[in-house]
Design a protein around this nucleic acid. Sequence first.
DNA 1: CATTATTGGATTTTGGAAAATAAGTGGATC
DNA 2: GATCCACTTATTTTCCAAAATCCAATAATG
Lengths: 240, 240
Amino acid sequence: MSDMNSSASIPAQTTPPRTVAEATYVALKEDILSGAVLPGRSLLTRELIERYGCGISPIREALAKLVAEGLLEAASHKGVRVPLPTVEDLNDIYRIRIALEREALVLAMQHGDDHWEGQILSAAHRLANAPLPEDPHDAAALRDWEIRHRAFHNSLISAAPAPRLKRLIAQMVDQTERYRALRLAHFGPKDISSFIREHDLLRDAIIARDPRAPDLLAAHFESSRDFVQKYLETSQVESV
Amino acid sequence: MSDMNSSASIPAQTTPPRTVAEATYVALKEDILSGAVLPGRSLLTRELIERYGCGISPIREALAKLVAEGLLEAASHKGVRVPLPTVEDLNDIYRIRIALEREALVLAMQHGDDHWEGQILSAAHRLANAPLPEDPHDAAALRDWEIRHRAFHNSLISAAPAPRLKRLIAQMVDQTERYRALRLAHFGPKDISSFIREHDLLRDAIIARDPRAPDLLAAHFESSRDFVQKYLETSQVESV
DNA sequence: CATTATTGGATTTTGGAAAATAAGTGGATC
DNA sequence: GATCCACTTATTTTCCAAAATCCAATAATG
């Protein structure tokens, strides 16, 4: 009971994969989000079998799941590939995420009790204690910060009694993760302090049940989107 | 070139299934939405193979896709089943749908041209010309009305340049379809005329770019949700 | 020379059979 | 009489080989 939630070995309450297909799904997803599999290039079944050391069926099942989530795109008889990052796609994704998270936050603020508030304060504290490193190449520290950042945003809407809504939000969070590298690579000290302030304001507004909190959350995501968009446009020419 | 788009043989631009898995997916989905496979009962792979006359692989792929869409729920090593309809689930689904469609409508009203307006007027006309039958047991007429109703709502947001958003909305529409039977069975003359009026107001507000149109759309869905909810609560005891 | 068929190789898709897991059953023990 | 354990059955999950399909390069034709 002492270390049920304190264990930070694995983000969230990751249940151990019960089938090969699940394990493959998790591994493949991580490789997509981390950028290990390049956008645009189509994934060959044969290579995937070697890489993840299993048969066709689990691969196929994992691919189908990722396609349904939108993390991969498929053309019949032509394989699957990671969609290319574009400004249009970025806007499309953030628009959905903002609409859904706003809804979830309203719900959470209606139904959340003091236990929920405690979770938010705890997650905010843990986020504040792992500041973004000045050096954008410190992968381990960046990853740690990302996990805590995710945990913070997750805590905000955790009290919403809407499992489908929360599952959809999780999917959109994954989608925005695809742009993670682009975002973290360009973080400067000024952006960091601005981000921290937004998080603090958000936390306080939510705890105080300030009706403007959902707008703050939306604005937070919009600034995050704009930040990525700025560097996506410039790097558009370089890549591919 | 003459009849590229004019052919109305099949609703929407239903591309013919290119693989067995696709065909199975479509058939199984239709069976779920129409209520042919009962909620709660777990689907046996063996039975599905017989029913749809194919091997395991396409079945498995179709199931995976439907699970990812939320139309089926799966437990590891314990098969899949149609989720039981509940008031909580209904609210969860409609909450998502309303948030997303509102967003899409705002976008469509910004980007829609007169071609889009024409599509709306056309779809509205076709909906008005196929009034809901007085007899709630006229399955063919009900189905025809449903198709036109869907086409109308689809036309409203068709101009939104947001493929991911529209795909997600389509998924949510499917989810609400699960409650189709419950909704159509209890439609009375009063409900019908009320529905028609809401559609007309919506059409006019959107064409006129009335900023209150998104609110009208949300209210339309809310009344639809409340209608289903009323009869879901009473029938909860009977079934299962 | 441009355009259309053909062919070969690569890739996806499928069906069935084997392995792994969960559920059900009966009997022995306390 | 109730509980637990070993065993049997049912079901899901996985693997693999064969069939269907697609793509690109080549040959043939006007």
